[in-house]
């Protein structure tokens, strides 16, 4: 498919999506708290008593009771159409949280005030979520969170399906820093994610890549998608340390050998340009220049420990001279086995 055809296809797809989206039904109404708590004339002679949270959420202060109102609560005012009103109120989807309201309402910091956690609920027109975000819970339960104690507030089977929204937001900017977050919060991560989930992307030893195993995961940030074979030298040069987070140089060479682009395979094509090894160290294609620039790429084929062919020339007394660049140092003695190959015993 040509690039022009691709763009045409994309535009057509977006146009169809826009049309479909425009035809979609609006969302069903939900309970308008603001109407009931602030817009009804109340308290004055001849008007009904003002509503409070407990007027409808009667069961919230007693252990074991459902905190949500029943149709009976609606009948207090909506005598004729209580069932219709109740149906329109559309109780929110249960979030699977174990939350003993009666225990929390008695806490000194809450003192029976629902709005301590359900901030803004009195102004809710019905379209907003009235569940407090988890960051509200963490204002008291941070220690439990850090210890990875997610149950029994959350239920174990729900954890794998939940996605953080108000902390550790798992959005597009998350993926770049999920490693450092996992450093701090391994116990937390492990509540929802198995260790094999980490291995699903990071394990270089599996026979199928994560992209091959999950061809339907269009939203996942998997790095080896599309024509990665052609792109990989550019990606490796652009982010030289990134590849080494999962791969070892031997991984590169195993594939290069298999595809005949490594000196490790008999009959391989030499990937290096003319002048690569020669007397003209000032040449643009001289190997030393590229080695300084992107040593990790060299390691893809040449990382053979003491057997590497680099030290044929780059050793004490060799034609390649001192390989150690300015600023190089090591805490090891020259008697270490790796050093002995050049420096003698």
């Amino acid at each position: 498919m040509t690039p022009r055809a691709s763009v045409s296809l994309i535009i057509a797809a977006l146009a169809v999506a826009a049309l479909v989206g425009a035809c979609e039904r609006p969302p069903a109404p939900v309970f308008p708290h603001v109407t009931h708590l602030e817009k009804i004339a109340c308290g004055a002679p001849g008007t009904p008593a003002c509503l409070t949270c407990a007027t409808c959420h009667e069961g919230v202060r007693q252990a074991g009771n459902d905190p949500y109102p029943t149709v009976k609560a609606c009948t207090k005012c909506h005598e004729k159409d209580a069932s219709t009103k109740f149906a329109q109120a559309a109780p929110p989807k249960r979030e699977g949280i174990f939350f003993p309201h009666e225990r929390h309402l008695g806490q000194p910091g809450i003192r029976g005030q629902c709005v301590k956690c359900h901030a803004g609920v009195a102004d809710a027109t019905g379209q907003e979520a009235t569940f407090p975000p988890m960051s509200t819970c963490l204002s008291c339960h941070q220690r439990d969170f850090d210890a990875g104690t997610c149950t029994p507030c959350h239920t174990g089977s729900d954890l794998a399906t939940l996605k953080p929204r108000s902390f550790m937001r798992h959005d597009a900017t998350w993926i770049r820093h999920h490693g450092p977050s996992a450093t701090r919060s391994q116990l937390v991560c492990n509540q929802c994610h198995k260790q094999s989930d980490c291995e699903g992307c990071h394990d270089q030893k599996q026979p199928l890549t994560a992209e091959q195993r999950r061809p339907d995961a269009v939203e996942a940030s998997l790095v080896h998608r599309g024509d990665f074979i052609t792109r990989h030298p550019m990606e490796a040069r652009s982010q030289p340390a990134t590849c080494l987070r999962c791969h070892q140089p031997s991984t590169c060479n195993a594939c290069h050998v298999e595809r005949g682009v490594s000196g490790g395979a008999v009959g391989s094509a030499n990937p290096h340009p003319p002048g690569w090894v020669g007397p003209n160290a000032g040449s643009r294609d001289f190997h030393g220049r590229e080695a300084k620039r992107n040593l990790v790429a060299c390691a893809a084929c040449h990382d053979a420990g003491p057997a590497t062919n680099c030290i044929v020339c780059h050793k004490v007394g060799g034609s390649g001279g001192n390989p150690h660049p300015h600023g190089w140092s090591s805490s090891r003695s020259t008697g270490a086995s790796m050093c002995r190959y050049c420096h003698g015993s």
């Binding site: 140089p249 990790v296 060299c298 390691a299 420990g305």
Partner: peptide
Amino acid sequence: PALFLSRQSVLGVFAA
């Protein structure tokens, strides 16, 4: 990047 190579890699001495 060179510091992400094993210290058993001779190549590790070539770049800083």
